[in-house]
Design a protein around this nucleic acid. Structure first.
Length: 272
DNA sequence: CACGTCACCTGCGTGC
DNA sequence: TGCACGCAGGTGACGT
């Protein structure tokens, strides 16, 4: 489900409900969900931790706690939401955190739900332990047309796998990469070091535009997991194989690049 | 360093 | 209805 805009949407929804509350207990239902610490150390470490801030780094959800930092990566099918404490456990619940009551609100719990079990959580002292290898945030000031151009020149890789590499840029996934490349009129398999300065500028602009539009529409919901987003109704290429390009009317093609389904317009995005 | 392949998992849609 | 198959928003560990 989630790329940067979907994670940002979840973070914005959770932030006002979580800040100022205390985690009372943890219940780990699928042990591999927790990378660190060990399941036996989790309870003692997390009980009594206050939630000071709720943030996002790339696709990671970051809860800043009194003395620890909790990170959650939703991977393919994860979701994170608040339920009433007396709600029945569901089939795909993997980690449940009991929250202190919030004013007159009833006791609640923060649930990490993940059908495919790819999602992961970390409870660490230092954020760097989890975020250390991530590339720049595409919507922050450190990411500029110049830095993107320099990064592209420094590598010799196909554009799509490079943009999916979280150490190159943090937050793009399969959908937003296809959408950004289409907006920038670049072929997914163009080599990064062949990109001209003005093309890099167009790509920078396209990346920011698709992410901002995704956030504005509360993300994309394209399967049974995520709810509420509208961006899926505005895809130009993703999932539109056989339909027409909204720019030129050509039939959108689907191919496979780096094991990922890849959608593009052969006219707007010529291979050259 | 770049790339291909597999592994991790479950569930849904399609076609026979 | 059942069943096999392909596909899925992500990443990490391999081998070449």
């Amino acid at each position: 489900m989630p790329e940067l805009p979907e994670v940002e949407t979840i973070v914005r929804a959770l932030r006002p409900k979580l800040i100022g509350r205390t985690i009372l207990a943890a219940d780990l239902l699928w042990p591999r969900t927790l990378v660190t610490p060990s399941a036996s150390q989790l309870q003692e470490a997390i009980a009594g931790q206050d939630i000071l801030a709720v943030a996002r780094r790339g696709k990671l959800i970051h809860l800043r706690l009194s003395t620890f930092n909790l990170f959650v990566h939703l991977r393919m099918s994860g979701d994170l939401y608040i339920k009433e404490a007396d709600a029945l456990p569901e089939k795909h619940d993997r980690l449940i955190l009991t929250l202190s009551p919030n004013g007159q609100a009833k006791a609640q719990k923060l649930v990490f739900d993940d059908a495919r079990k790819f999602g992961r959580a970390w409870l660490v002292r230092e954020p760097q332990e989890v975020t250390g290898k991530l590339g720049p945030e595409p919507l922050e000031d450190g990411f500029t047309p110049q830095s993107l151009y320099a990064g592209l020149q420094a590598r010799r890789r196909q554009l799509k796998p490079l943009l999916l590499d979280q150490s190159f840029l943090a937050g793009l996934g399969n959908i937003y990469t296809d959408e950004a490349l289409h907006r920038a009129r670049l072929h997914p398999q163009a080599m990064s070091n062949s990109i001209k300065r003005e093309q890099a500028e167009a790509l920078w602009e396209a990346i920011r535009a698709v992410l901002q539009e995704g956030i504005r529409r509360n993300g994309a919901s394209i399967d049974w997991v995520y709810r509420g987003g509208q961006f899926q109704n505005h895809f130009r290429v993703y999932g539109r194989e056989g339909q027409t390009c909204p720019v030129c009317g050509t039939t959108i093609q689907r191919t496979v690049v780096g094991q990922r389904g890849t959608h593009f317009c052969p006219v707007c995005q010529p291979r050259e």
